[in-house]
Design a protein around this nucleic acid. Sequence first.
DNA 1: TGAACCTTTGGTAGCGGTTCCAGCACCTGA
DNA 2: TCAGGTGCTGGAACCGCTACCAAAGGTTCA
Lengths: 333, 333
Amino acid sequence: MSTIVDVAARAGVGVGTVSRVLNESPLVSDKTRERVLAVIEELDYRPSHMARNLSLGRTLTVGVIVPFLTQAAVMDRIRGIVATLRTTPYDIVLFTVETPAQRSEQFRNLARNRVDGLLSVSLSPDDQEVERFRRAGIPVVLINGRHDSLPRVVTDDTAGGALATRHLIKLGHQRIAFIGEPTLDPYGVGWSECRQIGYRNALEDAGLEIRAEYQLLGQPGRAVAHRLTRELLRLPEPPTAVFVASDKQALAVMEAAQDMGFDVPGRLSVIGFDDIDIAKYVGLTTVHQPLFESGCRGAELILEALQVETLEPFEEVLPVDLVQRKSTAPPTS
Amino acid sequence: MSTIVDVAARAGVGVGTVSRVLNESPLVSDKTRERVLAVIEELDYRPSHMARNLSLGRTLTVGVIVPFLTQAAVMDRIRGIVATLRTTPYDIVLFTVETPAQRSEQFRNLARNRVDGLLSVSLSPDDQEVERFRRAGIPVVLINGRHDSLPRVVTDDTAGGALATRHLIKLGHQRIAFIGEPTLDPYGVGWSECRQIGYRNALEDAGLEIRAEYQLLGQPGRAVAHRLTRELLRLPEPPTAVFVASDKQALAVMEAAQDMGFDVPGRLSVIGFDDIDIAKYVGLTTVHQPLFESGCRGAELILEALQVETLEPFEEVLPVDLVQRKSTAPPTS
DNA sequence: TGAACCTTTGGTAGCGGTTCCAGCACCTGA
DNA sequence: TCAGGTGCTGGAACCGCTACCAAAGGTTCA
């Protein structure tokens, strides 16, 4: 592989001049520029990124750190990030974390020269980590995460929870249950929690009773969903509708209800949250949150931060909306 | 941010010694090592990746180049790659291409210092590009792509096509149609094509007639699927079953058939290919191809290639298997 | 006692770019 | 004719690390 020195020698000029040609500096005569470009072409020369980075002190790289990729929602967000960054000179380096230990290790390593900026998806750094990034001059933008001193784009989970619940109320349901997931990230206010708050708010506003036995939490997964669904449906006064905090769990709940002979939406209305791909195919009524757009927006913010050096922290709340499909209907009574 | 020089100065040793400590060289006395480590801790020092890379001539980075991420199958493959590479020191840089021009530009840039190795998903470089990589000493592994001089992992599309078709034959179908996609990548032998070949082979083996009017191609998408489905079902002798070359298209075909009042699988059996997430939820019988595993395998191969410097080209064919769900049934005579 | 060796160390030359400074040729105006 | 620009150029310093070489100090053995 040829280097800038080879090009300079062959073109009979100094390395400085070649560098100027590469960087489109106006301080090169047309004649020289042409000669250099010809040699570059001839040698099929490409400047070394590494050397350029070291010299410039920049990597032209944006880190994207995400929890394991099993979540469809995370994948959609990545899509948005990729789509936005593709038109820029920035490359994307993907980091995944699965355990808390990995997570801090990754954050720690990231703060050193590897990337120019960081997009953290569904993961929030703690104060110490934020401080490290600040010292290193690496801007961080959170997507679906929270830290008061960082710019971030979040979904209006509370509003979404209320929206879903109001939809059920409007259909005439009175006994409405909630199924959610326990919060994992110690640093975030769990999305499931927020959606549950929205649920309670909506019930309260409608003057409906908030019953503890109607609010169940469990890990995502088919088995757990079956158990929770059974628990609900065997109540002396079973709910006629259920708001499930995520589509993935909602699908499992639908399946469980049908397995138990409860027709959906005939005897049980089910509404989810996220609007993942599958929802459309199985006709799940759900709250659409702009996953793809959240990736785009996050990417735009990090690009901005990369320009201005410091972006004042603020929270951008993305709106949610209801997508009515076939899994909700008025109660039969 | 402190550098190796700062650490050396503060510890009262030379930079060489610090470097040795960092790289766990045995040529350092315990006493010195301890002192250096203490200073590293104290200054919260992390070596610069860029400088290290430049000096080492390696980036500890694997490039992953993929077509646009709208395909669920590509996402699953990426998952496998990420899962495998996570346990290694290699980082993943994601490149996407959308147009042929972008594609060669990406391949061209990639051949220079940016990555140590390349995983190409569903994209095959041409001879010139392969030669460039060879000269640059960058190993390339293809996942779901073909080039005779590159190691690659592919799905047994022909066998899968035959498998799907035999399943329909075994159920008793005689009039079996095929719907596929036109081949796009000029450098690959289209997967759709291979699956179609498997289809024809199976029909031939069973002594069934191969009819031209039963084999239709069209771009993926709901509208086209509707048109093709209508075309098939309005034939004087409409097929009783159809093998669709991809799940995505199969879903659209199912929908189209149902819209036209053809019950699936009552009046038309539909079988797909890929086993994407959604297939499970809608009960689509399909041919499972190990997408996640293909990513894992590709990643393993590139790691191997990175070790041995040169990996002789070979083709690893991943097996497929039938997943029977609810979209296929014996024909109602 | 000193030659020969081993262990540990410091210093420096790259890696391949960018950037800055000095210098050269040419031009302008007094 | 010469001081002072201006336009372009070459070369060296530098980015922060690794790898190598030379050397210092300690040990062994004749």
